[in-house]
Structures are given as structure tokens and as C-alpha cells.
Amino acid sequence: MAGTFDFRRKQGPWSKSGPTIRLILGSTLIAAVGLFGLTRNDIFGLSFAWPHAALWGAVGWGRVGLSIRPMLVLIVFGVMQDVIFHAPFGCFEVVNLLTYAGSTAIASQFDVMSEPLIAITSSVLLFAGAFLLLWLMASTLEDHAVRILPLIAAMLTTGLLYALIHRAFDLGRRPGETPGQAA
């Protein structure tokens, strides 16, 4: 995560792309992972936890500061998640937006771009916080304590995959930079 901007300096097509293109590609990736998650999640009889892909966007996009477009995208994904998981409307939107808010808050206080320890710790905390919030909401709204093991499994999948593909959710700006400055 720390080498994100070193990666940019290599001047590949990705490093030349602006925040809009990156946001679209990140959203496409989230949508694709989400749609695959609708099908049966087992291979050779082994079922596995599917990641909550929208949280990748919430954590990754939040690292460059607040912006309206990522918020709207996260709300759209939240609505889709509400429908898919048969949750009351608003649950996943709140989780996504609070994670996004947490990510921007951490990025405004610490240098998440060049300090690997902070980058990793903040991501772990954000994912853990998001799933804890999800568990609390589900347990409250369903009137019983929901099983925590599937959520932990989903959190691990989400976090591990994020470690591999976090660059897809880097909008290519430093915290506080305006889109014009980034280009």
C-alpha cells in the first residue's frame, strides 16, 4: 500500500489515468465480484465466504479524502447489498458510508500513503469496524445474535483480497489534493 505513488511514477496506463477512470474501474470490479457472489459460492463441494466488495471501495477511495462521487457509488452498492442480503434498506449504505468516513478521517490524521504500518493497521481496523457494525445492526434488526463465524470468514476474505488488489481502489491523489491538482 505504501508504494502506491511509486507505482504511479512508472507511468503505465494506470498511473496516467485520472480519478474518474479509476473510480469507474474500481466500481466495475466491485460490481463484478458482487455479481459472481450471487451465484453458488462453492468449488469442488467446498463453500467459502464471499467478500463484501463494496468495503474495498469504502476503504480505498476514502484514503484520498471526501468526495461526492464515491459516496454516491457506495450508496448504490449499498442498495444492491440490501436487496441481495434481504436487509432493511439503509443498513449497507450506513456501513459503507461510515467505513468511507472512517477511512477519510484516518487519512486526514495520518500519512497512510507512505507509512506501511499505518496503511495496514488502518485497513484492518476499518474492515473489523465495518463487520462489527454489520453484526451489531443485523443482530439488532433480526432480534437475535446472528452467527459471527460467517462474518469473520467474509471479513478475512475481504481483507486478504484487498491486500492484493488495493491499487485498483487508489484514486491517484494524495489526501487533500483536488482532482485538478492530481492530474
Binding site: 459460492n41 441481495i84 436487509a87
Partner: peptide, 9 residues
Amino acid sequence: TSESEGPFA
């Protein structure tokens, strides 16, 4: 077409 293993229903 869709199975949800989420925390809700």
C-alpha cells in the same frame, strides 16, 4: 440465481 450467506435473513 442468488444465495445470500449474509447476516440477515
